[in-house]
Amino acid sequence: MTAGVAEVGNRAPLPDISPKAVPLVERISVVFFVVGPVVALLAAVPFFWGWGLGWTDIAIFAFLYPFNALGITVGYHRHFTHKGFKAKRWLRIVLAILGGQAWQGSVIFWVSDHRRHHKYADQEGDPHSPWAFGPGVWGLSKGLFHAHMGWLFRKERTSRTKYAPDLLADRDLRIMSRNDVYLLIVASTILVPMGLGALLTWSWHGAVTALFWAGLLRVFAGDHITFSINSICHVFGKTHFKTRDHSRNVWWLAIPSFGESWHNLHHADPTSARHGVLKGQIDISARVIWLFEKLGWVWDVRWPDEERLAAKRI
């Protein structure tokens, strides 16, 4: 496969997005959708420090962020969507709850959309391809916004019975995906940091600031990192493996995304429990799965196969 055009079966040719084909103005557009909001959040820290933000809020943020991030990366994505490993029932429930606290939808809702994304990656039918509006300054700018978060406001909904029948057959997941139960999970996202803030400072002020910084803005930051995989990692970055789409690796997102930004290998081998397979590619989620395996909590982990990787290398 060349870097610009690929055809698989009846799939239409993909638009040319080799590095030379993406103008600087189009690269800059990513700042408005991803980097901009995060930079604005960081800029607010010194402004509010001392009267609206303190070390307690930062500590609670840092403590809670990994739990919901792993709920998405290890739970929603690598386990429930792609079956990269099998897990004990209690761990499945915990992962579904932690993923739900990220405010990205219930586990069945999330998995249905993501499986559909893989079926039609960067083609018609993909719910969040940044190439839905074509190349060019306007097309890609509009596409980046669509892939990052615009697609969440679409009227069309992915069929759960078609894309997630296995999850619908799981009683635990059906219960957690009910609106009333999911709302409780969502509420816990802000109630937990609020409670920790109150306990650590023994004040309403500490509870309120923790609710805002370690609750709402923690969700904001985590969601933007996840959405970046849909937008940035299908336009910018490097490719090391053959795929039928434009998935790419973006190194600077690797740590905040817990390894999800090694997106090129993921699309080349979706069921692999590890995405960062090359030297220097840090994959925190894979290391957590490895730890779970050592503890006996998960098994049948689909670790990368060297021969399969070699066959897919560009």
Rank of each mutant, 00 (worst) to 15 (best):
A87R: 04
V74E: 08
H117T: 05
V235K: 10
I282D: 05
L291Y: 00
V186Y: 10
R89A: 07
A96Q: 03
D122N: 12
K162D: 09
A286S: 09
S272L: 00
R89Q: 08
V30R: 01
K20I: 00
D283S: 09
H246L: 12
L140W: 11
H246G: 03
D166W: 08
D180R: 14
L211F: 14
G105L: 03
W151Q: 02
L42Y: 10
R287N: 11
A198P: 00
A273I: 02
L144I: 15
L184P: 00
V30I: 07
A214W: 13
W49Y: 12
E293A: 11
T161I: 10
F241S: 02
N68A: 12
N10M: 05
I72Y: 06
P193Y: 15
V107R: 02
V39H: 01
A102H: 06
I190M: 11
D57L: 06
W51L: 12
A132Y: 00
P46V: 02
T226R: 09
I232F: 13
A12Q: 13
R11K: 13
T2P: 14
K119D: 03
F80H: 11
M149W: 12
E293Q: 13
I229C: 05
F47P: 00
K238A: 10
V107D: 01
T56L: 08
C233Q: 04
L167P: 09
V301H: 09
L144P: 11
L53N: 04
H77S: 11
A69C: 09
A169L: 13
H114P: 13
I284M: 07
G150Q: 00
G197P: 10
T161Q: 14
H128V: 03
F32P: 00
T271H: 10
V181S: 08
M176D: 01
W204A: 14
G237C: 06
K155Y: 01
A96D: 08
L265A: 07
